[in-house]
Design a protein around this nucleic acid. Structure first.
Lengths: 156, 156
DNA sequence: TTTGTTGCAAAACGTTTGCAGCCTC
DNA sequence: GAGGCTGCAAACGTTTTGCAACAAA
């Protein structure tokens, strides 16, 4: 969580591929090129993405994968804890999470803007707390309110 | 938040009706019986509900309102901060929130179980924090992991 | 009387599923 | 060769929309 030497971009890429590879083996599944393509694309993407945006991104790069495969793979990566899943709006949003800083989200209830912030007190409180008979893997904190712009547009 | 004398059930009912009434007036909208019926039904409901469960509940009591009206009204009550909205799963879940204790949620990523917990340190950290150029109205903390039951069923 | 609201049905939307063919192991 | 995986299209369930009739102000 607080590695003193960070993986270089190259090593990090190999690392996440290794994690995926191991997890596929552990479950007796198959190492398809689609799974590694999707993983790589996700780790080249900054910020949030949706199944649809990922589908379009891959299409533009001439990787023509079906939506069904992207749904399956993203869900699988979520189970492997290689991506996080959020429901800020109706559509599920994801982001890479291996070797990334734990952060929280501000969501404007008027315009839908999403912004990240960090708070070490909150993180510590949530992560070091004892959850009775519950084995925490991760958490999601979303703070709702009005962004600066919407505070100044005073129509209902 | 920690009133020494709590509203009686009667007063609380009048209070929330008043809040809704005021908010409707403030926006120049109309005080329809449907809106007050839905509000009352929600405040008689403990725990989470969905548009569908609310629709069925009202139907059983012979209030035949359309789903569209329930969607509209519940969203309106959310804007008035009379209900909270969650996306634990695919479908939106709601709960009453006026005069209710702030709490957080545990969600089991295997079976979908949702359980509430409270933590005054977390609540304080989130509520007293300064959000730069952001006007917080409420927040949602969801802790994911495995519930007791799913920890003991060790198949993938 | 004006115009917001309701109920209904259809449409839209994100997501899941069934299945034939393909490819990993 | 067996069986998991993919792509396609159809199905699904939730939510939104369009519109005519209704009712609050």
């Amino acid at each position: 969580m607080d590695n003193s030497k960070k993986d270089s971009s190259k090593n990090s890429k190999e690392t996440i591929q290794q994690i995926l590879s191991d997890e596929i083996e552990r479950r007796g599944l198959r190492k398809t090129p689609e799974r590694f393509t999707i993983l790589e694309e996700i780790y080249q993407t900054e910020g949030h993405f949706t199944v649809d945006s990922l589908y379009n991104q891959l299409n533009e790069k001439n990787y023509h994968l079906s939506r069904a495969t992207i749904y399956n793979t993203v869900e699988f990566l979520y189970e492997c804890h290689l991506v996080l899943k959020h429901y800020f709006h109706k559509e599920a949003e994801y982001e890479k999470c291996f070797n990334c800083k734990v952060h929280h989200h501000l969501v404007c209830t008027k315009c839908g803007m999403v912004k990240e912030f960090t708070d070490s007190n909150i993180r510590r409180d949530v992560q070091t707390r004892h959850y009775k008979k519950f084995d925490m893997t991760h958490f999601s904190l979303v703070v709702y309110g009005l962004c600066e712009k919407c505070q100044n547009n005073h129509q209902v």
